[in-house]
Nucleic acid binder design. Sequence first.
DNA 1: TAGATTGTTAATCGATTAACAATC
DNA 2: TAGATTGTTAATCGATTAACAATC
Lengths: 218, 218
Amino acid sequence: MPEKRRALSNAAELERRIPKAVIKRLSLYSRVLQNLEIAQREKVSSRELAAQLGLNSAQVRKDLAHFGQFGVPGLGYYVADLRRNIKGILGTDRGVRLALVGVGNLGSALLSYGGFQRQGFQMIAAFDSDRRKVGSSRAGVAIHDVGDLSRVIRVERVDIAVLAVPVDHAQGVCDSLVDAGITAILNFVPAYLAVPDHVKVHYVDLSIEIESLSYYLR
Amino acid sequence: MPEKRRALSNAAELERRIPKAVIKRLSLYSRVLQNLEIAQREKVSSRELAAQLGLNSAQVRKDLAHFGQFGVPGLGYYVADLRRNIKGILGTDRGVRLALVGVGNLGSALLSYGGFQRQGFQMIAAFDSDRRKVGSSRAGVAIHDVGDLSRVIRVERVDIAVLAVPVDHAQGVCDSLVDAGITAILNFVPAYLAVPDHVKVHYVDLSIEIESLSYYLR
DNA sequence: TAGATTGTTAATCGATTAACAATC
DNA sequence: TAGATTGTTAATCGATTAACAATC
């Protein structure tokens, strides 16, 4: 007779148990730790970490405790050590490979923005359907025909797709991405994407952010 | 002897009682309703609304019930009517006025993006400290000197500031915005902003989104 | 050692979902 | 009327915070 509950054996199972909000904060911690490291700080307490992010110190300790014991009672956390651990947990220590789909207004902006490269992510390829763009490059990234999506994504071993196509093409392109084996999508298109369970979509939606801010205007 | 609890008398008090997540979804409903209206649909059920956004129908009904009774049992919601109501609640029916601070890579992109204007928001002014940019305009928006921040923001009655300055200027500029009377900030800078209680900040942080996606790669 | 801060448990708070009587 | 769908209550689920013994 099998035990009622298997041990946490693999990443997929472990994921389910870590709240999404914790993962988001993990990258915030990582950034603060980077700054502390630059400032040559050796140690930091959960209290200070929390203060720098407007959080509660118990929350910081609890978040980290999900993944192990990183701190020293009475002392705090060693900055460099904790940072390395968090990068390992997030998987950002192994050069995550990105591709952009849709080199329009917003897409171009994202390419020239450069904020991605800076954090150790690599923008490997871009895709568009416009004949005039295909074959050229923007900010050092080659623009391919969307027809080659599947092939290029496999060959270049792309981890995450950044979606910035016109709204009426979003679901179709999304389906192609999933077919090509993509499991993580950063979606800038103001549309809900239906995807299988194993695919993770994060939404960045500028007008939704503005609209909900409007509500709070006195 | 005063009653233990005053009635919900003003917006500030009402706000506290409406969960933030509900407000975010309200703008999502608004967008779906816009599409339904374009498609000439007269009515829609909470079930369909939910399906189009990957939500639960009970959640849709409960969200809307926070603000009144908009539906008809057995029938659903009238598309145009519900949309009008939601826009009223969000306050997006009265031309929200925006200003951009920081016309660098990302800032320029946001100006030419145009996604804001399209949804009925008005980009009124931009600010930068670079002499070469000040006095010119981008995408039809005049670029002012940050020194004139306070004056222009008051004169132009700006509702929401969009922040896209270099990270080490973020808190300083944020303080100026608050001094100028701004109560809502959309922050693209990867930094936590300390603000008084009456000011609402929304964060859009691209590298945090990518980092947390990385975690979910198999 | 005395002081500080962790990791963890219990208490609180908030948000989501299921279920169903009321209503059209 | 019969069928459908709302608004709302109760149950569940998940996330945050307070408190403190254990530890350096």
